[in-house]
Nucleic acid binder design. Structure first.
Lengths: 350, 350
DNA sequence: GTTAGCACTCCATTAAAATGAGTGCTAACA
DNA sequence: TGTTAGCACTCATTTTAATGGAGTGCTAAC
């Protein structure tokens, strides 16, 4: 099953060439392209082998070969060299970007929205980014305040300065003293806890202690649970959906509709969000080629995702969606840089 | 410049037919289609006149005619009958929708997001909706709380239960008493005011009264100003962007990219938001045909917008973007219903 | 003023032909 | 035994030509 060195080189040449041109590549091209100094006939023989082994395929007889998913996979795993040379200029470019991003940014959301746009412009693929998850972040501060007769405002601050709030209806207005008491109760009990740590016995104890205001406490806790619960919170921003249309193999009406539709219906993207199952390269990068994708509607694409991590355990996912023949090297490199630098930018703006 | 009745009828027939088929319509079709009982030759003569007057045009010689922007405009202004007959079923349909929407909706944002999706599915065009504006809403409640040594949380509640918050850095930690005082000062001064009413002299007086905490008050006021300022607040949700691809006249790569890109880059849509300049039909409906649009990139489309109004003076815009040959009647009818009912749904969920 | 008739235009569709990139296979070569 | 030149063959793409038909404009007659 292993490929000898020559076959590897030929496969690599095929993939590289196809990434560049998007056209099936023939034996003659390879014969000239590589330093192997082999005639096209020899290449043809090797190609026949490679096809038999499933690394490349022919769109039709008498066409050149294109990489199969398996071929891309081998390329990505074994042959892709990191572009150290490019790294410097990329660093610089991203430094510029940082300045650009910081300007006028004062909320994480805005930062991420800008980031995802920059990434889309940079790569010419579609991009997505999820707001950080914070299930495991701890409660820092809770406050109830009476806003109107029958309305209580509940504000919740989590580690990482995530603020959630909700207006809760109450039957009868509360006096200041009652509210003060409740605040003390809530803070002393819940501060420093994560959602997972707020369990049933705790809840019943608190509702007990709250006496008359038992139902209110209950409502507050519900509000917290709801506020903190992942699916209500994770937002996904996308950008560059129209980049899809730049690639003929994706731009026919049916595929484009499916893809752009998926990007629009952000919920469908959640399965791309860092399930952090093993398959990454040790630096939080994951590559899904074709059918490997967890999002069915993207089976004609490749998806590259990276997990970024801000301080305070805030963690999210950033991803690039493009044709299978995307420039994996560049994308991976860019994502790594983005991921590394996101933290910096974030620190500067907070 | 006025058209006689017969020409009107012919134009109307052309537009209607073109809306249905999307194909240029010829004289023979009209001759049979209308109850005018005129031969195709006569129709041809009239068509020649209509073309000369700019109401219709020929894609090429030996093709039928299609309406020009001017033709559409006349149709929309003068010929479009409201479909009273359909109204009943539409009402019902929207009632169903209401139930669907209320389920699990507990924030206005979610309501609007669902609404815009339903609208897109219903019409088969692209849709947009803006979150309500609240420049003129009054301050209901302000509260500062010390969250950490150097961080103060500022919560602002406006009429309509719009909540804004921001964490403000301070030099030195504030004791409870100081915060209490500030809260009283802020509330007593600002409650019941709109942003416009918070003027310079008021600010300087307050910073004076705040003594040591002058800068903090300044920061709080800045935060309010920023929170309340329109461009930071208005969000626009879109849906059904891919519906664009259903219409051949818009689905070529270039146009589609431009349009979907515009929908993605929501900021570009702000000029569609209820500048409420006169040109509406008295019920908050506006129709932009082709070049009439304030958004340059949509000059190949028509856009229909409606202003909706929730209670408490919350007001936003909902819009439909489609090909010029969109079904204006249906769209206008649907928008009217949505606009009327949005308020109801909103009341139910709050 | 209306209509029938006719020549003309031009797009769209189909069919046929030319092109050419690329293959697989065979036989000769080192 | 691995490599290469040569050649016949395949098949998507492009080009060209032919055909059909929807629709018009104009003229002459009603």
């Amino acid at each position: 099953m292993e490929l000898d060195e020559r076959k590897m080189k030929i496969l690599q040449a095929i993939v590289k060439n196809y990434l560049e041109t998007g056209e099936p590549v023939g034996s003659r091209t390879i014969s000239k392209y590589t330093d192997l100094n082999l005639s096209s006939a020899t290449i043809r023989n090797e190609m026949a082998d490679l096809e038999e082994q499933g690394y490349i395929l022919q769109p039709h007889t008498s066409a050149g070969r294109i990489p199969s998913d398996k071929g891309y996979r081998l390329y990505v795993d074994e042959m892709m060299r990191e572009r150290e040379t490019l790294l410097d200029s990329k660093e610089k470019q991203l430094d510029d970007m940082k300045d650009f991003l910081i300007e006028k940014v004062d909320r994480v959301e805005t930062l991420l929205q800008n980031m995802v746009k920059v990434l889309a412009n940079n790569t010419n693929y579609a991009t997505m980014i999820s707001t950080p998850q914070f299930q495991n972040n701890r409660v820092k501060f809770i406050q109830l305040s009476s806003v109107e007769e029958d309305q209580v405002l509940c504000v919740l601050v989590l580690e990482g300065n995530i603020i959630k709030n909700k207006i809760i209806k109450v039957e009868e207005s509360l006096n200041n003293e009652a509210i003060l008491k409740l605040n003390i109760l809530l803070n002393s009990t819940l501060n420093g806890l994560t959602l997972d740590e707020i369990n049933l016995s705790m809840i019943s104890r608190m509702t007990g202690q709250a006496g008359e205001q038992g139902t209110l406490v209950r409502n507050v806790l519900d509000a917290i649970a709801e506020a903190i619960h992942s699916e209500n919170n994770m937002e996904i921003y996308t950008s560059g959906a129209t980049n899809i249309l730049k690639y003929p193999e994706l731009s026919d009406s049916e595929k484009a509709t499916r893809l752009i539709g998926t990007l629009e219906e952000k919920k469908l993207l959640t399965s791309l969000i860092s399930d952090s199952n093993g398959e990454d390269d040790g630096r939080g990068i994951q590559i899904y080629i074709g059918d490997e994708t967890p999002v069915q509607s993207m089976k004609d694409c490749s998806v590259v995702t990276a997990t970024y991590e801000l301080e305070d355990g805030l963690r999210g996912t950033i991803g690039v969606i493009g044709p299978k023949r995307m420039d994996y090297e560049k994308v991976v490199e860019t994502l790594k840089t983005v991921k590394d630098q996101l933290d910096d930018v974030y620190k500067k703006i907070t």
